[in-house]
């Protein structure tokens, strides 16, 4: 079994972004997805700090200190991009104007609950940013997450242990081992990496998995 790398996970998630979609990429791993938009598709990336049409990181010499992304890194604007204030940025988020939010997670539950804002570690003050707004507001919430924690504990659980960002919001999960859909019947395995079978994947997952009849091998190029 060969798990996907983080870049390959981002590549896989990017393949599902449709031409013309308005998309918000969460901080961290999801941000990488913008590097892998399939050629010929126009995707408009939204940033919570008032940008539609966010482009790649600036080339040397093109940096503008007034132009940053949600992770406070320097970014650029593509032709056709626009700026607006925070209230409009979150009106777009909460009001269902974004087609997809691709978010990171600590845990996702069988029912699609998302936990991605606090581990309640007393060493760190909590912070939520725009996570809860994205989780309740985007038309479709998809999650990018390593299948297990570093010490092998499942992140796809029967119910979340960490505090929720929002209940029942996640539709699709991309992990380094599988592509999963949250459905009324339970979590359906759409794709799995080669060398893994349902029993093997189930052993790394707390939620009960259902194998789709037409499941495919999860493959990604070396990116």
């Amino acid at each position: 079994m060969k798990p996907l790398t983080r870049r390959q996970m981002a590549w896989r998630a990017a393949q599902d972004l449709e031409d013309g979609a308005y998309v918000n990429l969460g901080i961290g791993l999801p941000t990488l997805c913008s590097d892998f938009v399939p050629e010929g598709r126009e995707i408009v990336f939204h940033s919570e700090n008032g940008i539609l049409g966010m482009g790649p990181a600036p080339k040397p010499g093109e940096e503008d200190p007034d132009l940053i992304n949600a992770g406070k890194q320097l970014t650029t604007l593509v032709p056709g991009g626009t700026y607006f204030h925070h209230n409009d940025a979150f009106l777009m988020i909460r009001g269902g104007h974004l087609d997809v939010a691709l978010l990171g997670a600590f845990e996702v539950s069988q029912g699609g609950d998302l936990a991605n804002w606090t581990t309640e570690d007393p060493n760190f003050p909590p912070g939520v940013g725009g996570a809860m707004d994205l989780a309740v507001g985007a038309r479709e919430v998809r999650v990018l997450v390593e299948h297990t924690t570093k010490d092998g504990k499942p992140r796809i659980r029967k119910s979340c242990v960490y505090p929720l960002t929002a209940p029942h919001c996640v539709k699709r999960i991309y992990t380094n081992l599988a592509v999963l859909d949250v459905t009324r019947e339970g979590i359906v395995v759409r794709e799995m990496v080669a060398g893994l079978d349902l029993a093997g994947l189930q052993a790394l997952t707390e939620a009960t998995l259902i194998l789709a009849n037409d499941w495919k091998k999860l493959e990604a190029p070396a990116v």
């Binding site: 919570e48 925070h86 209230n87 979150f90 909460r94 003050p125 909590p126 939520v128 725009g130 707004d133």
Partner: peptide
């Protein structure tokens, strides 16, 4: 003292 407010809610409360 720290009060955490979701970003969109913070924005809308001021609006």
């Amino acid at each position: 003292e720290l009060e955490i407010v979701p970003q969109g809610t913070l924005s809308e409360r001021m609006r």
